[in-house]
Amino acid sequence: MSRRVLAKVSEVKPGAPKIVTAMGRQIGLFNVGGEYFALANRCPHMGAELCKGWIVGLVQSDAPGEYRVTRPGEFLRCPWHGWEFDIKTGQSWCDPKSVKARNFKVQVEPGSELVKGPYVAETFPVTVEEDYLVIDL
């Protein structure tokens, strides 16, 4: 396992995930209210590029005809069949136990730590001035 630097914190804005490639695999980085999460860019259902779906809230209802949007910005709707995934856990809403998108633990590290290594940034130089998103792969 190695730790990878994936992006500058400033590059990942709420509602606008950044898709990066690390070790040959595509990973979507999400900023949900200042917390960072990473999901494999591959839907566990039929392999669509999951992170290109819509960032949405979870629609819930207390009774037929009543609609509530809860947890805005915390769900991802797959661009193909529209299944909903919890960005924080990768779990699908419809079948949380068996349908789950691969997720990775993301850490925010200051550049001053990272430049010392042993971290790897595949596509860009790491500088001391910024904070970075780092995952174990």
Binding site: V59, D62, G82, C94, D95
Partner: peptide, 15 residues
């Protein structure tokens, strides 16, 4: 179909 269209009928909270 429910898995993809659930937000249309959010009260249907089970398959």
């Amino acid at each position: 179909t429910w898995r993809g269209t659930r937000p249309e009928v959010p009260w249907v909270d089970r398959a």
